[in-house]
Nucleic acid binder design. Structure first.
Length: 970
RNA sequence: GCCGACUUAGCUCAGUGGUAGAGCACUCGCUUCACACGCGAUAGGCCACAAGUUCGAAUCUUGUAGUCGGCACCA
């Protein structure tokens, strides 16, 4: 078979995904084993407004690697996809569209029409990300795709809300909340970010005290007889003084304690406010006197509660001043009002001073507008009991287990310990409308439906709460609401029974399709919850992960997931987080086009778990090259495939399995002498098996980058650079022999198994090549998928945890001997390069080694001769080499390359000397260590012995090299 | 302010107590019949700095400096 000289990713990416999906390979139903263990992951639902970014690509790669491996291991595997309705984001898109297309505001078309248009928007644009996920090769079960506003998920939301309300875990109340004047909605604490401002100002305002003559100056200006005339307060938000209802001082503050109980004449208003004493005030800070605005500051609110102060709200929802701020200020923007307040204080001589003040301002996470703390009537979730549930889970079962554990476990726990109530209402139209209704008097009736609420009210005329729930409220249910829990339709079923089929249904099972999903659907919750692992970024551990843990536990009494893998951040090339404003983003789709999906995926997987990484095109290029390497190794197979095919028995180090087993495995049944393993065969199989073991260990510990490194090294260095070169002559031999067929088949089998090992990382190229390899087919599938059409996706993932325990995995003798062969080849190549002996000139090579080692080199003499381009190769115990020879030494051999007429003696001396120098450096260190009494005394005996052996070895080599050098000087 | 992470070859990064590794770049050589997206051979590190623990430290402890996060903030 002829295939292209270079790998073209596009070609492979075009058709396989479509087939995988339409054949149903992604669904758990593909698994024929009723007793198969399950493996499940729910995707962090991307926003419907989103398009694929590098963070998604990273997380999806990790999830796909996990899922594909488990599927190949025979697990009943579900990776569930879906999207989030993204309240504010979608709302904003629709508002913009409305404004642009029709110059209308939402209120012009009304709520119902607005929501209808939001759905239209979602239908039109919401598939962007799901299509991009197909491009990524994500093996998600599209038949179970969910959206947070699906009917059953919405039912779940209402049920959860009502239950929590009934149990007193949800309440409505007046609190100081974070208000975004641009989005005109309340935000939870987590949606508010701090922004450092260096240009802040601290204003010192002088408040006159009643019954005092006009104020003259000083922090607490006093008249001649010592009576205090005014009190100065400091503030960063002067406009809020219009809402002041008190001034507070610390009761222990000697300066002011006599003022407590007196009255302030609040400037710019006609109000009189009291001076109160409160421990909250820090006498050391500012002036020691604090203006109290209970409706616009959380701390002031507390003070207000304690002193029963009036709460005067002075702003509208867009942060303009309202009527309560007085006629001079009504309608002004808060910042305009600020300037005007300051100006008026100055006119009145009441502005004591203005200081520069560095501070941090709370801003809206999405629109960066300065958030206004404001008194508002909102819905909250009381978090104390939920927090305790999550903390118990962590303390008693150490769940979830974070990877990396440090620092996330600690940060997560600390955050829980300081958790405050969660503001869940949002003043939007797009989302889950709060299932609460009000009568004309404002009494609230919470119900799952309007009818239920009305019944509770005794049939009164009701209107539903206009607000919707925080997007994260529905996402918090994602782990179980997506698996069929809606709170009123779920009937627990026996997990096992779900997979039972009545007799006679076996045939139907043959062409199992998505249709009998109904058989499974009711029990998805029992089957797949808890999910096994959650893969996500740091930014939503609190926002999403923690809430899902709590809500899942609360409503299903199950864990949401056992493990959490926290991925790092993919930074731009400048080392800063990718963002539109910095314009340092790297589009995954561009990378797919440029280097291929597989190369991008495996590069992302090669990043250490949890570590941030600066994006680096060269890294992807490396794996693009790797793909090409694999392509060409396979191409070599296919160019020499006559009479050959995959034969698993050719990879057995030990005795072959019995005949019946051999047939079952699809072996080609080679026999006799040709079947015998050569040293390179034993070595490469041993390396493959060890790599397999190590890859599985690494993946089970979520060390994806380690697994990538292992496979990369095996494939490129060991399989291609060494083994392929060693067996090339045999494989390309002109003579058609069984020996040649076995060599070809063994190489094909090695490639085939390595492709399976690699498949979870590089699904497209591995499938493309696997399909081309002779002898691949469903018989290589894991036994759970024997009826499925052939695909590497369902081939058994290489492992040694069970199949043939009598078959040894590794051959350490072969690894040692092969190491000796490799050493010799490298030394001779080094001589060639250093002495400028071109490869085109064949040389004579003499290998001097103990008699019991002769076979190592003799058995491989042809390969060695080829790889160093030797015209003759002598292997003896004692060789007297000509003086004009270049020499080297390895662990078990002395090498001479006679170079009469070609050798440059100076260069050879230099070469020998540099080898001696290098060894001497190590020798000195070893000597130092071994002559250190305390080392010999305290270090483990094995260690000391190891060093002694190494010392002897180096001494021997140095001696030989010195002899060589002397011989040269004679 | 509190907590944390990071600092290893020119670059991007692996490496959690026992001779410092990879990829790319660099140098030298190769139209070796799978691959120049390749092959072969070199060179290149006081593992940020200091002190400590240890027979032994890139690795553990403490401190310092720099970089970057998270959380909380006094008007």
């Amino acid at each position: 078979m002829e295939i292209a000289k270079a790998y073209d990713p596009k070609q492979a990416e075009e058709h396989h995904y479509q087939r995988w999906e339409s054949e149903g390979f992604f669904t758990p139903e593909i698994n024929e084993d009723l007793d198969a263990k399950k493996y499940s992951i729910v995707i962090p639902p991307p926003n419907v407004t989103g398009s694929l970014h590098m963070g998604h690509a990273l997380q999806h790669t990790i999830m796909d690697v996990l899922t594909r491996r488990k599927r190949m291991q025979g697990y009943r595997t579900l990776w569930l996809p879906g999207t989030d309705h993204a309240g504010i984001s979608v709302q904003r898109k629709v508002v913009e569209q409305l404004k642009k297309d029709e110059h209308k505001k939402p209120t012009d078309i009304g709520r119902e029409e607005f929501v209808r248009r939001a759905w239209t928007w979602k239908e039109q644009y919401g598939n962007t990300i799901t299509e991009q996920m197909r491009r990524e090769g994500a093996s998600v079960d599209w038949t179970r795709q969910r959206f947070t506003m699906d009917e059953s998920l919405s039912t779940a939301v209402r049920n959860v809300f009502c239950t929590l309300y009934e149990e007193g875990w949800i309440y409505k109340g007046l609190r100081i909340v974070n208000w975004c004047p641009k989005d005109k909605t309340v935000l939870s604490d987590l949606e508010v970010k701090e922004e450092a401002r260096k240009d802040g100002k601290l204003y010192y305002l002088r408040y006159p005290i009643k019954s005092s003559p006009p104020v003259l100056g000083g922090v607490a200006a006093a008249s001649a007889d010592g009576v205090v005339l005014s009190l100065t307060v400091a503030t960063t938000r002067p406009e809020t003084m219009l809402g002041d209802t008190a001034v507070a001082v610390n009761p222990k503050d000697e300066r002011y304690k006599d003022l407590i109980g007196k009255t302030i004449l609040l400037p710019l208003t006609d109000r009189e406010i009291p001076i109160v004493g409160d421990e909250y005030v820090d006498a050391e800070f500012g002036t020691g006197a604090v203006k109290i605005t209970p409706a616009h500051d959380p701390n002031d609110y507390q003070v207000g509660e304690r002193h029963n102060l009036e709460r005067l709200l002075i702003m509208n929802e867009d942060a303009t001043m309202n009527a309560a701020a007085g006629p001079d200020f009504e309608g002004l923007d808060r910042f305009v009002a600020r300037a005007k307040v300051v100006e008026r204080f100055e006119e009145l001589g009441l502005l004591e001073k203005v200081e520069d003040y560095e501070m941090t301002l709370p801003v809206c996470e999405r629109c960066k507008t300065v958030v206004e703390p404001i008194l508002s009537d909102q819905w909250f979730v009381k978090m104390d009991e939920m927090r305790d549930m999550a903390l118990d889970l962590m303390r008693s079962e150490a769940v979830p287990h974070f990877s990396p554990q440090v620092p996330h476990e600690k940060v997560y726990t600390a955050w829980l310990e300081n958790l405050k109530d969660w503001t869940i209402s949002r003043q939007l139209w797009w989302g889950h409308q709060i299932p609460a209704w009000y009568d004309a008097d404002g009494n609230v009736f919470v119900g799952r439906t309007a009818e239920e609420a009305q019944a509770k009210s005794g049939g009164r005329e009701l209107t539903q709460d206009q607000d919707v729930l925080d997007t994260w409220f529905s996402s918090g249910l994602w782990a179980f609401s997506t698996l069929g829990w809606s709170g009123d339709t779920h009937v627990p079923t026996d997990a096992a029974s779900a997979f039972e089929r009545s007799p006679g249904e076996d045939e139907a099972a043959e062409n199992r399709s998505l249709e009998d999903k109904s058989v499974l659907a009711p029990s998805d919750l029992d089957t797949f919850l808890p999910t096994d692992v959650l893969v996500t970024g740091r930014d939503i551990i609190f926002l999403w992960v923690s809430r899902m843990i709590m809500l899942t536990k609360k409503f299903t009494d199950k864990k949401a997931f056992e493990d959490v893998i926290v991925t790092g951040t993919v930074l731009g090339k400048d080392g800063k987080p990718m963002s539109k404003s910095r314009n340092n983003g790297v589009d995954p789709l561009e990378m797919f086009d440029k280097f291929g999906v597989d190369a991008t995926r495996i590069y992302l997987a090669s990043i250490a778990t949890g570590a941030d990484i600066k994006w680096n095109d060269v890294g992807v290029e490396t794996y693009r090259n790797f793909a090409n390497k694999i392509w060409n190794a396979t191409r070599f197979c296919l160019m020499n495939a006559d009479g050959a095919g995959v034969d698993p028995t050719l990879l057995f180090l030990g005795p072959a399995p019995d005949a019946s087993k051999v047939k079952e495995m699809g072996a080609l049944a080679f026999t006799g002498e040709a079947f015998k393993l050569s040293l390179p065969d034993r070595w490469i199989i041993s390396r493959l098996n060890q790599t397999t073991v190590d890859v599985n260990v690494a993946l089970s510990k979520y060390q994806f980058h380690t697994a990538v490194g292992l496979i990369f090294h095996f494939f490129w260095d060991e399989l291609c650079d060494w083994y392929l070169e060693l067996v090339k002559d045999e494989i390309t031999s002109e003579i058609d022999s069984e020996r040649r067929q076995v060599a070809r088949s063994r190489f094909i089998s090695l490639i085939e198994r390595a492709l399976r090992l690699l498949h979870p990382f590089m699904p497209f190229i591995t499938e493309e090549l696997w399909q081309k390899l002779p002898g691949t087919g469903s018989h290589l599938h894991h036994k759970s998928y024997s009826g499925a059409p052939p695909t590497i996706m369902l081939a058994e993932y290489p492992d040694f945890s069970g199949s043939f325990p009598e078959n040894p995995n590794t051959d350490l003798a072969a690894e040692t001997e092969m190491g000796a062969v490799i050493d010799v080849i490298k030394k001779v190549r080094n001589i060639r390069t250093e002495l400028n002996i071109p490869f085109s000139i064949p040389v004579e090579v003499l290998i001097e080694t103990d008699i019991h080692n002769h076979h190592i080199f003799r058995d491989n003499n042809l390969q060695i001769a080829k790889l160093v381009r030797a015209k003759t190769l002598r292997i003896e115990s004692n060789i007297l080499a000509p003086k004009a020879s270049a020499k080297s030494v390895t662990g078990i051999a002395r090498i001479s390359v006679p170079l009469e007429g070609l050798i440059d003696f100076d260069k050879e001396r230099e070469r020998l000397q540099s080898q001696i120098d290098k060894l001497n450096v190590e020798l000195q260190r070893l000597n130092g260590q071994l002559s250190n009494a305390s080392f010999v005394e305290k270090a483990p005996a094995e260690k000391a012995q190891e060093l002694r052996e190494r010392q002897a070895e180096i001494e021997r080599q140095v001696k030989v090299l010195n002899q060589n050098l002397e011989a040269l000087n004679k």
